[in-house]
Amino acid sequence: MSGRALRTVLPGLLLIAALALLAASLPAFGASRYAQTLVYYLAYDIVLGQSWNLMSGMTGYVSFAHGALAGLGAYATVIAMNAGWPVPAALAGGCLASVAGSFVVGASSLRLRGVAFTFATLFFQQLALLILRKLPLSGGPGGLALQDILPLALPQILMVALAALATAGVLILRRSRLGIRLLAIREDEDAAAALGIGVTRLKLGVFCASAAIAGAAGAAHGLFTASLYPDDVFSVDVSLTALAVPMIGGMATAGGPVAGAALLVGIGELLQIFAPSLHLVVIGALLLAVVLFMPRGLLPFLAAPLRRLSAAPQPAAERGTAP
């Protein structure tokens, strides 16, 4: 990326680094266990959301499989850990398992346009659950436990680092030619192809990259929970969270999923106290409201009037993106 583009993302990168450092040093400040857990789930939702954002927010191809991709990462990592692999290798194995899954789904469906991919991801999400329930390797319906429990600080710091990296990655991508090409695919695939963009390959490549992030989130989460039950890990809830976070906060922006995750975690906590059974209903209503009234998501919706007020013309890549 050019020097000019780098300068436009630098403040954002510094902000991300500062927030991540703050989040990672919560225990040192003596933050409560509750606060630490809250921050952990915030980071988890950000990673899931950014991973979905990378594929679906940028290219417009809606995925319902990001929960299953994260689940694959979790299972592969815990299985590898139990087989005695060192943590970094186990994490890498988790990412790889997700990438392999995404490759199968993507290679079979991204040649086609429109909803074929979405149906393929839904199918994959359900298939993964069925297989993991039956497979002896994964402990069947009874689940799988991590044999050597690690200090919680490890997955916590890991998740915060992943959130920071994923957000920084989307921020840089949004200002790069590669990011522009992904958006071009979302806008018009024929016009993109006419400009030399290898549409199918690029979609597949970005889906695999997105799966690597989802897999990393799942892997870290596997270390955090230390026990995996197929019905939880492959519940469609995780896929819905990955989708709701950027859709609510703002798609194809770096800040949107951060705002979306904060909102969802906040609402989740409030509902936990007042009406635990209403969680999915409220998320559903929120998604509906966003789709109806602010299709670009919360941050772009809030930013639009500010932009109209400021007379100064905006730099090119600034448009439609969150700070």
């Binding site: 090409r181 958006l183 024929d190 400009l195 963009i197 890549a317 448009r319």
Partner: peptide
């Protein structure tokens, strides 16, 4: 294209930057 096919949500500059040499 005879019927123009711009990337509507991108800026004019970004439309040009999308092209692969």
């Amino acid at each position: 294209f005879q019927v123009t096919r711009p990337f509507r949500d991108l800026t004019a500059r970004e439309n040009v930057l999308a092209a692969v040499p």
